[in-house]
């Protein structure tokens, strides 16, 4: 088992190195560099930059060095927690991402929590009472949830919330708290703003999860061990929750891997529509402006989170499935 763990860990490290290379290459793919973009930007607004000034900027940012050296320097600094300076924001990348990262995680976790607490019981119900009225009801609802684009739902909910409930929609904070330092009042303000984005983000995932849980559980309910459990005299509820539901949870543990990067980025489109100060829109801006250190940091973060997610889901699978735990090390 220890060998299995170590092997996984080693693989994860190697993957991270590759991700850093890919992140770096992706940033450098578009023609020209940041200074070119910067000059073009200034030219559009009427001012200009001399060739010497441009050279000086390139030197400042290390853009005159060979690619390999730029990469090594970048990685070296990243390992010290220094992701460089965002060229657009003119502030350290860590500072730019900082608060947004935590807010994104809060929003995404709220959405995840909502997804799981709604989807799992409904999925179990739909499978156990297959083809019942309730099952049809939730199936219909689920397909609508899958079919409606999130951003459209966001717009509709915003309108309804604003028009009829007088909610303060958009963003995660009221105007007076946007720039304010953290305080209890600000946290409370955040809590009030959280339900709408969480509900919007949770919807599609919930619909999908209901379908997955229902299908998984339907497969498991037909297995002989369920009859065994009933034949022991267990109550129907206990027989189903202890055996087939447990087996149906396996695929969920694997899906955790995909949830981790989502935790960091959130949904870009929904965040834009709802004006959420999360990482997603930031990545979009950084890519548009060729803000290479910022974009690189976010891409790297997403990649590493995927690796971490995979590792966590592997551990989780080991924990819930004895077959992996006992045979994985062999």
């Amino acid at each position: 088992m220890l060998i299995y763990l170590l092997r996984r860990l080693g693989l994860a490290l190697v993957t991270c190195v590759f991700i850093s290379v890919v992140a770096f290459v992706i940033i450098r793919l578009p023609p020209g560099d940041f200074v070119d973009a910067f000059i073009a930007n200034l030219a559009a607004s009427g001012s200009s930059v001399s060739a010497e000034q441009a050279e000086a900027m390139r030197r400042d940012y290390g853009l005159d060095q060979p690619v390999l050296i730029q990469y090594v320097r970048w990685v070296g600094r990243v390992l010290h927690g220094d992701f460089g300076v965002s060229m657009v924001w003119r502030r350290p990348v860590t500072e730019v991402i900082g608060d947004r990262l935590w807010l994104t995680m809060v929003v995404s976790l709220a959405a995840l929590f909502l997804t799981w607490t709604i989807a799992l019981p409904i999925g179990i119900y739909s499978a156990v009472r297959q083809y019942s009225l309730g099952d049809y009801f939730f199936t219909t609802l689920g397909f609508i949830g899958l079919a409606v684009p999130n951003f459209l739902l966001a717009l509709i909910l915003m309108y309804l919330g604003f028009r009829y409930l007088g909610l303060n929609v958009g963003g995660l904070f009221s105007a007076e708290y946007v720039q304010a330092p953290w305080s209890l009042a600000r946290v409370w303000d955040l809590t009030k703003h959280l339900p709408l984005p969480a509900a919007v983000l949770a919807l599609a995932g919930t619909a999908q999860l209901i379908r997955i849980m229902r299908a998984n559980l339907l497969d498991e309910l037909r297995k002989p061990y369920v009859v065994t459990a009933r034949a022991k005299g267990l109550t129907e509820r206990r027989a189903i929750l202890k055996y087939p539901v447990r087996a149906a949870l396996n695929p969920f543990a694997s899906s955790i891997a995909y949830l981790f990067p989502y935790l960091v980025s959130g949904s870009i489109i929904v965040s834009l529509v709802l004006g959420l100060p999360t990482v997603g829109p930031l990545l979009l801006q950084a890519l548009v402006a060729q803000d290479m250190f910022l974009a690189g940091a976010i891409v790297l973060l997403l990649g590493v989170m995927t690796v971490v997610g995979t590792l966590v889901s592997d551990l989780l699978l080991m924990w819930i499935d004895p077959r992996i735990r006992l045979e994985g090390g062999a």
């Binding site: 061990y225 459990a229 009933r230 034949a231 022991k232 004895p322």
Partner: peptide, 19 residues
């Protein structure tokens, strides 16, 4: 079930839960 009448299954692999 189980108390008065016990049931033995055909497929000993699938009749027992692997978990």
């Amino acid at each position: 079930r189980g108390g008065r009448i016990g049931l033995i299954f055909q497929e000993p692999m699938t009749a027992l839960s692997v978990h």
